[in-house]
């Protein structure tokens, strides 16, 4: 109950701050007018981040008033490489990254050697989207519901690419919901792990909801648990992890889903010029509420779910404070595969 109240206060405070800042930002700034802005996508040209960043780019450029928005991809280390790079970039606001904010929070907690930054010191400029994530099992698997998984007399085999946010999520689920986990790392990518699950080499894996839609429809995969905070209307019978947790473990899962919901976001280096931060946040706000963008996102089946930069900053600071309890679980999971 205690964490609940804290959360409530945090969210209220955040929205209050957000509201004020939103008004302040409404006075249009000329900070980016006719400048060239570099946008670094933390992921490969074919990945989801790229898809979203490129969808939003024209609108963002328009609302920034920038003469050009130069997009480049920096992949590696599941987004850590771009984050390490952003940590050292000149904080004039002319270089901004777009990537998965949850990786930035998870990796340092787990003590990942690849993370050379402090997540909360980045300037978060707004969330573009947060997609519900689900635990999927293979269509032919004997596991039909999450209860079947809990009754399993052997460890749940989880094919994984390595220590990405889904790996951390899985480790937390296993601890909080009480089932044994065997992570098999070394798979090359989503195609590889998906095939392992469909084939039955592995029991299940976590993906974004849209990514597995086709496989669910054809019966190749079956969703058994939502790992983000709310049930998904298309699958009303699939419970969320938070619902199933005992009172003692619920806080942990709430912290986890809060981290996951920070998802695809814009961020700038620490100590970025406040004028730049305000101007960029305002532009992200305007771009993601632009009716033309919303129409395009709906047409292309790429839903956006905007969160204001100020609000996000406060939320991330709160999340980072609250999620210290996850550290032992994540560190143990990393140790188990080494």
């Amino acid at each position: 109950m205690k964490t609940r109240t804290k959360w409530l206060i945090a969210v209220m405070a955040a929205s209050l701050v957000g509201g004020f800042a939103g008004q302040a930002a409404a006075q249009k700034s000329d900070y980016y007018k006719d400048k060239v802005v570099n946008l670094i996508i933390a992921g490969s040209p074919s990945g989801g981040h790229s898809r979203y960043a490129r969808l939003i780019a024209p609108y963002l450029q328009k609302h920034l008033g920038a003469s050009e928005l130069r997009i480049s991809n920096m992949r590696g280390g599941g987004g850590l490489k771009a984050a390490n790079h952003m940590w050292r970039v000149k904080p004039d606001g002319m270089t901004v990254a777009f990537g998965n904010a949850s990786t930035l929070i998870f990796a340092p907690i787990a003590g990942s050697k690849g993370a050379k930054f402090i997540a909360t010191e980045f300037a978060f400029l707004g969330r573009a989207t947060s997609e519900p994530r689900m635990l999927m099992v293979g269509g032919k698997s004997s596991i039909k519901t999450f209860q079947d998984l809990q009754k399993l007399d052997r460890p749940f085999i989880y094919p994984s690419q390595g220590t990405d946010e889904d790996f951390y999520t899985m480790a937390i689920l296993s601890d909080a919901l009480g089932f044994k986990l065997k992570a098999v790392t070394g798979y090359e990518g989503n195609a590889d792990t998906a095939l392992a699950v469909i084939k039955g080499d592995g029991d299940g894996h976590i993906t974004g909801w849209s990514e597995s839609q086709a496989a669910i429809k054809s019966g190749d995969k079956r969703p058994i648990l939502v790992v983000t905070s709310q049930r998904i209307p298309d699958y009303p019978d699939v419970p969320t992890a938070i619902e199933l947790a005992s009172a003692g473990k619920r806080g942990m899962l709430e912290a986890m889903s809060n981290i996951l919901e920070t998802h695809r976001s814009y961020y700038a280096p620490p100590k970025t010029n406040p004028e730049a931060v305000a101007a960029f946040r305002a532009a992200v706000d305007a771009a993601l509420n632009d009716p033309a963008l919303l129409a395009e996102s709906k047409k292309g089946n790429r839903p956006v779910s905007f969160m204001n930069g100020n609000q996000q900053q406060a939320a991330i600071e709160q999340i980072a404070r609250e999620s210290g309890g996850l550290a032992p679980v994540l560190k143990a999971a990393v140790k188990a595969i080494q």
């Binding site: 280390g77 050697k113 690849g114 390595g162 220590t163 790392t185 070394g186 595969i337 080494q338």
Partner: peptide
């Protein structure tokens, strides 16, 4: 397999 840096000499470039 384990995401441990190998032969990287603490260089971020070599991590990939």
């Amino acid at each position: 397999v384990t995401a441990t840096p190998r032969f990287t000499f603490d260089s971020e470039f070599l991590m990939d």
